[in-house]
Design a binder for these strands. Structure first.
Lengths: 342, 342
DNA sequence: TGTTAGCACTCCCTTGAAATGAGTGCTAAC
DNA sequence: GTTAGCACTCATTTCAAGGGAGTGCTAACA
């Protein structure tokens, strides 16, 4: 069977109506809703076809129809094909100047949640940072020294180390030179055990300091550590009866709170390079089990210097895809500016 | 009317039973439950008294009794007076060695939530840190310098600054000396506008760097910035039907997610110095509006060097106060060790 | 004077039957 | 190919009846 133009129109009408109301939609509603001027009986025939084709389904006999995952998918695909939509100016998205990335991202998540009435998440941008850029040891007081490590992408790690027997300024300077000349510009792979042993030997009695610094370097470089994820509006799921029952809500809330599982979403989104950077997961398509009754829309954003992060919107399957995709697209463009404004 | 021993016993029996079941408890239950050997009729008379005195109440005629806030309060006060309970060894609380405070606190919150089946929060320890301890500017590359600021309590702040026209190593050294000799040991109040102007003048063309550093100092010192709060187990509230209805759950979840309001709890708890460091808020006693149907138990913990934070457990009024208070007391003692172990 | 047995009464909650109504599938006519 | 009409289905609402848990009160008992 073919999905001709009339069937398409009817299908879209069904979905749009369902998006608004959340109730199964009947033939009579469609008969009036569209400009097709068809009687409800005709619509019923077409609906039977659409059901057979798998685009819509009936919760029970004598109920109206609701879109299936396949139906949503069709709708979203059609939506995405539409011409680049005009970038709506989000005046309400006035973000105050922020000097901290963290605060900015938290605010974006929050505003986005308020704006869309869905749950949102945003991951801090990640960059390739495999190389040590700079190491500095400084005295804080008699027994403590501060180790500052900067790696590519300007990720900074601080460690305060205690030194038992005092340490002369001279020794500190030597250690600084030792570490910088040997480690700068190296990646984690290039810092091998042999090299570490050599460094320790040169550091003599202060080899423990070298150990600690190298541990800190490893940590600063290891990517997953600061894959921070910020969420907001988790409680918005209570707005949608189909998600608000206790079992589902509890699971979802847990996912948002633990954040651990959200990583998968980020990984999955970033992995997919080809498209415009916006992806839609409907129902079972999502990598996260607890969201199998939801739809998830994700966008990859990119800050000037090649750092990429993920924004996600999680809501019911009858999400306002149109608006969400539009908003995300706008945000993709704006986020870079916001960051540059700092 | 007096709250004699028998009334006390009955009241405690009622409360304990209600804590377990969550259902109103009737006279017959108490008659069998206690070792008083009284008939249900006698219990009924006593219950009528207790109700008149405001310790218990009836949801409706011909229902059993449930504790009122006053009843809970009595129960908790009696509990707290009990002799220092033996510190239970929490074997299951084996926390892996963590080198980051943040990770430690997140883990504690999580374990605590799993352990108690309530929602938990923990605030990062705060210390008085009004004084600058140490400032260091270092070159990262040709156009960027890194400013590291350490204030009392070893709070560290990093800022990367861009410098337009290059900066010689000599100038950098001069700036370092300038900043350290003038700012070290000073509190925010002591760094006044006159001094800032003086510094800027001495810095000459690099006065903008001085400005940025001073801004960073102000931020590092300002306390509220890093009053981080970690939460866990918010979805545990779904275990208690009296909290699980949509309106309440949504509000609670929101409170946990936004964290903003939780600050009040921390402030309130830290303000109260006199007692053992454990406080119980029942119903309306809590400073947080959305928790007025909950009970909140908070504990102040102290890490060796005078840093204090707050742990909170949020659950239904029929919380197992006994266990919760015990667990928190244990944790108070253990947290310091855990931290020292680092 | 305190305790207890007995009983009528209250009120929530469950159960099941009946009514409602939205929506369908099918058939026959246009 | 489209439509009107009708019988049918089934979730949901409504209502009354019955059960049950628990109370308050009274009268008897120790």
């Amino acid at each position: 069977m073919q999905l001709d133009e009339r069937k398409t129109k009817i299908l879209q009408a069904i979905i749009r109506n369902y998006l608004e109301t959340g109730e199964p939609v009947g033939s009579r509603t469609i008969s009036k809703y569209t400009d097709l001027n068809l009687s409800s009986a005709t619509i019923r025939n077409e609906m039977a076809d659409l059901e057979e084709m798998g685009y819509i389904l009936q919760p029970h006999t004598s109920a109206g129809r609701i879109p299936s995952d396949k139906g949503y998918r069709f709708y979203v695909d059609a939506l995405m094909e539409e011409k680049e939509r005009e970038v709506v100016e989000m005046k309400e998205m006035l973000v105050e100047r922020q000097d901290k990335m963290e605060t900015l991202l938290k605010q974006v998540a929050k505003l986005l949640a308020q704006n869309t009435q869905y749950a949102t998440m945003i991951s801090a941008p990640q960059t390739q940072r495999n190389k040590v850029k700079f190491i500095q040891l400084s005295r804080v007081d008699d027994n403590q020294i501060l180790a500052v490590i900067v790696v590519e992408g300007n990720v900074i790690k601080n460690n305060i180390l205690s030194v038992e027997g005092g340490l002369t300024d001279e020794t500190l300077l030597k250690l600084n030179i030792l570490l910088n000349t040997n480690l700068n510009g190296l990646s984690l792979e290039e810092i091998n055990l042999g090299m570490i042993a050599g460094l320790k030997q040169q550091a003599g009695i202060h080899s423990d300091i070298v150990s600690e610094v190298i541990d800190a370097v490893a940590e600063a470089i290891r990517a997953d550590e600061d894959l921070e994820i910020y969420t907001s509006g988790a409680n918005n799921i209570f707005r949608y009866p189909e998600l608000a029952d206790q079992a589902k809500a509890s699971e979802l809330i847990n996912t948002f709170e633990e954040k651990q599982q959200l990583h998968e979403l980020v990984v999955d989104t970033l992995a997919d390079e080809k498209n415009t950077g916006i992806q839609v997961y409907i129902g079972d398509e999502t990598p996260i089990q607890s969201m199998k009754d939801c739809s998830v829309v994700t966008a990859t954003y990119e800050l000037g210097d090649g750092m990429r992060g993920t924004i996600g919107i999680i809501g019911p399957k009858r999400m306002d895809y149109d608006k969400v995709v539009g908003t995300l697209r706008t945000l993709q463009n704006r986020l870079d500016e916001l960051y540059k404004d700092k």
